[in-house]
Design a protein around this nucleic acid. Structure first.
Lengths: 126, 126
DNA sequence: TATCTGTTATACTTTATATATAACAACAAA
DNA sequence: TTTGTTGTTATATATAAAGTATAACAGATA
């Protein structure tokens, strides 16, 4: 569980931890049921406070990607929730991203190829 | 120039203004050369401080989407910069978005259809 | 018993966000 | 010339977010 954190990033540290674990799950490097380091251990490895790690874990648990056992620690969830609102939220976020890229000259084909390439990195569990 | 702002949103007001104008350009409701309201006027309409509007305009100018004439006001840029790093930044941002949607059960086909639909809303200047 | 877990609580610092108010210089119109 | 407009700069203030530091708690485990 080595995880890269950039203290000078514009992104909050807890967001970086959240996204790293999310990507780990999506790409398969973290599997359902896998245990996560304790908040103190990961905080120590990253050189950040345990509350910063705890916030990331709490958000991951809120979204159903992680299950927290108060005494055993945090684990990757066995099943991920099919949030019915995820498509609406996805559309809103994608629109802003694609609009900016579009204006900066990224073509539709280039974008679709990029999406294809990103999906290829995702682990499929079917 | 009516523009919707949600004061209770998790997004900063200046970001909402930035994104609204960006989307206006991408969808064609704002055309190159169009003038934007003065920072005082838009601030008055939205019920926010002129500095909040000014920050949005400043960021838009930084990214090359808007040109600011210190005495005449702000205008949509006539040409948009082809940022060579936009693809790399796009990939990073897209990866997080798609990973989350993927885990929440949004299929690849559904995602590609969504992208297609978003692109259809963009104005093409060729 | 000693150690580990997430959690809660308190306190503190720094930065981000947003507002309020005033003033400036340059331009345009009365 | 005076008046009003523009973005900009400056100063001050208030609130929230982000992050750290430290301590303590309850339950599990070895």
């Amino acid at each position: 569980m080595i995880l890269q954190i950039n203290v000078n990033s514009e992104k909050p540290i807890y967001t970086q931890i959240y996204e790293s674990i999310l990507l780990g799950i999506a790409t398969g490097s973290l599997a359902p049921g896998d245990s996560l380091p304790s908040v103190r251990q990961l905080g120590g490895e990253l050189g950040v406070n345990l509350h910063t790690v705890n916030k990331a874990y709490r958000l991951l648990a809120q979204d159903g990607f992680v299950v927290i056992n108060k005494k055993k620690g945090a684990f990757i969830a066995l099943e991920f929730p099919r949030d019915p609102q995820s498509t609406a939220g996805l559309r809103e976020a994608l629109t802003v991203l694609l609009a900016k890229a579009h204006l900066q000259g990224v073509s539709q084909k280039e974008t679709l190829d990029l999406i294809q390439s990103i999906f290829n990195d995702f682990h499929r569990e079917d």
